[in-house]
């Protein structure tokens, strides 16, 4: 069975490069799909807009979600994900720059599964993967 993809929702191209690199360094074999902001992320998840042709059954294994984005921010995306029967159990890892307590509190309140401070580094990502019980994600080196 083909490993499900990881959905990275991030608007800053520098952060996209750094996050991709951290994932590669963590030996993540899953393909990474990129959504440039919150609206695009929802289109991807609910197969609307530019993702209208996507197979709705193909949900990502995990969503790495930036908080501060144009059009629709990460908290709103999280709220919509948790409000929909189809997506409400998806693991969501919040990526953020901020050390602001209220972001953390808000995102956990809305049902975020984990929290990684950017730039995403290998150690933090590995810790989140461990916390979420997503060991299978790090499977490049496994036979």
């Amino acid at each position: 069975m083909k490993a499900k993809s990881i959905l990275l929702v991030e608007d800053n191209p520098d952060d996209v490069v750094l996050t991709m690199r951290a994932l590669a360094k963590s030996h993540v074999a899953n393909s990474v799909d990129l959504a440039g902001d919150g609206v695009e992320a929802l289109e991807y998840l609910f197969c609307t807009g530019k993702y209208a042709g996507r197979d709705p059954c193909l949900l990502p294994q995990v969503i790495l979600l930036d908080l501060k984005m144009p059009r629709m921010d990460g908290l709103e995306v999280l709220r919509r994900i948790r409000a929909d029967e189809k997506t409400r159990l998806l693991p969501v890892v919040i990526l953020t720059t901020s050390s602001e307590e209220r972001d953390k509190v808000e995102s956990y309140k809305l049902g975020a599964n984990s929290y990684i401070r950017k730039p995403v580094d290998f150690a933090q990502f590995a810790e989140s993967v461990r916390q979420l019980g997503l060991y299978w994600l790090v499977l490049n080196e496994a036979p």
Binding site: N12, D14, D15, L18, L67, K68, T96, T97, S98, S99, E100, K118, P119
Partner: peptide
């Protein structure tokens, strides 16, 4: 917290 840190990051 967010904007000043982004380029620094």
């Amino acid at each position: 917290s967010h904007d000043l840190r982004a380029p620094l990051r």
